[in-house]
Amino acid sequence: MSHGIRRSIAQVIITGFLVVLLAAGGLGAAPADRVTLRLGWVMKGEYAFLFLGKERGIFEKHGINVEILEGKGSVAAMQAVATKNDTFGYTGGPSFLLSRSRGMPIKMVALVLQQGPQVLLSWPENPVRTPKELEGKSIILSPGDAFHSLWPAFAAGNNIDRSKVKEIVVGPDVRGQTFLLKRADVTPEFVTSAVYPLEEKAGVEFVKIWLGEIGWDTISNGIFAHEDTIRENPDLVRRFVAATLESFDFAAKNIDLATDVMVPKLGGQSRAVVRKQIEATVRLAQTKRTKGKPLGWSAPEDWKDSLSLMAKGGQMQTTEARGVYFYFTNEFIPTK
């Protein structure tokens, strides 16, 4: 065999090998950035869009290999990001506002749930229909939970005499069981997680005070990052936000697929309950001020209103000096 023929055969083999590598993404493709996302709570239907996005390769498409980790409360999730043990976090609400106001080096980069999912539950035979009716009743409070942070402001703003309310402090992991055993009259819960499983277990529909309907809605959950990450690696933040919001949009349009992903992760919860949680999550993605804006974009006025509510309890000062952009940014929200 001549030298020229051997060289031609070698070129064909090399070319074929390169084609295979390119088809597999093995040549020229930058390795995906490995990041962690710390959730604010244990598994619940609200998180379906994140797991669906990972399963469907949406994060991978944006060059991200994400590990999604369960949480043990909003404050713990924020501390994990503030200490750089985790890259990103997903939680928010009053706990985020308080923590950031006290100097925690984190900032919201995409507000996914712009309306709060919280309600106050009571039993039909012992209903609490207005905030003032909490006097003479008992309420469950869980340190690190959103309502625990909101409670002083909520009580002050609704002229509730806290000395007339029995505050039962338990960990968030036993709050639902404490309520089902009727050891408290009222419990705060989320329509994106515990409300529907509790109703299914109790076999009743609870009386609900929707906080948003009585003027106590605060900004809710979203993606936040350490200030250093935002400053030093804005491209990573931009891609992670894009992947998160694309995942949410995909889940909103494919509720059945999102339900399929989450049912195995929520052992013991029926498919119907999980679907209700996901549907409730999708409904909370915008406020009146953000309709027509890109998903994840939040209105400065909504942040200002939330901060004003928190200031009523004396836990934080009004924030005119810092301004609302101390808490969040819209710069990473995709415009298309």
Rank of each mutant, 00 (worst) to 15 (best):
Trp303Arg: 03
Arg271Trp: 09
Pro94Asn: 01
Arg231Lys: 15
Ala82Ile: 07
Trp210Val: 15
Val109Phe: 11
Ser95Ile: 09
Gln315Ala: 15
Thr192Leu: 01
Val195Trp: 01
Val241Thr: 04
Ile68Lys: 05
Gly89Cys: 05
Gly136Asp: 09
Tyr196Ile: 00
Val174Asp: 00
Asn126Asp: 13
Val204Ala: 06
Ile140Ala: 07
Arg231Ile: 06
Leu27Val: 15
Arg183Ile: 01
Val165Gly: 10
Ile68Gly: 09
Gly144Lys: 01
Ile333Val: 15
Ser138Phe: 10
Val12Arg: 12
Val35Glu: 01
Met310Lys: 03
Phe240Ile: 01
Gly323Val: 06
Met43Cys: 03
Thr244Ile: 03
Lys132Cys: 12
Arg322Ile: 10
Leu284Val: 08
Trp303Phe: 12
Ser163Ala: 13
Thr15Glu: 00
Asn221Met: 08
Val324Met: 06
Met78Glu: 08
Ala285His: 14
Arg129Gly: 06
Ser306Trp: 03
Lys132Gln: 14
Gln114Cys: 11
Ile13Leu: 14
Leu97Tyr: 02
Asp173Cys: 00
Ala252Arg: 07
Leu198His: 02
Thr87Val: 04
Gly26Ser: 10
Gln114Met: 10
Gln11Trp: 13
Val20Lys: 07
Thr290Met: 04
Gly268His: 09
Glu320Arg: 11
Ala24Ile: 06
Asp228Asn: 15
Trp216Thr: 07
Thr319Lys: 08
Leu245Trp: 03
Pro31Val: 10
Gly157His: 05
Thr91Ala: 12
Leu111Thr: 14
Arg283Val: 01
Leu141Met: 09
Gly89Trp: 07
Leu181Thr: 13
Asp86His: 12
Met1Leu: 12
Ser2Asp: 15
Phe17Trp: 09
Ile14Ala: 15
Ser298Val: 11
Asn254Pro: 13
Gln315Val: 14
Arg238Ser: 15
Leu211Cys: 10
Asp260Leu: 08
Ala251Cys: 14
Leu50Thr: 08
Gln118Phe: 13
Leu69Gly: 09
Trp303Asp: 09
Ala184Tyr: 03
Phe240Asp: 03
Val261Asn: 03
Leu307Cys: 08
Arg102Pro: 00
Val204Ile: 13
Gly292Ala: 10
Glu167Leu: 02
Val169Asp: 00
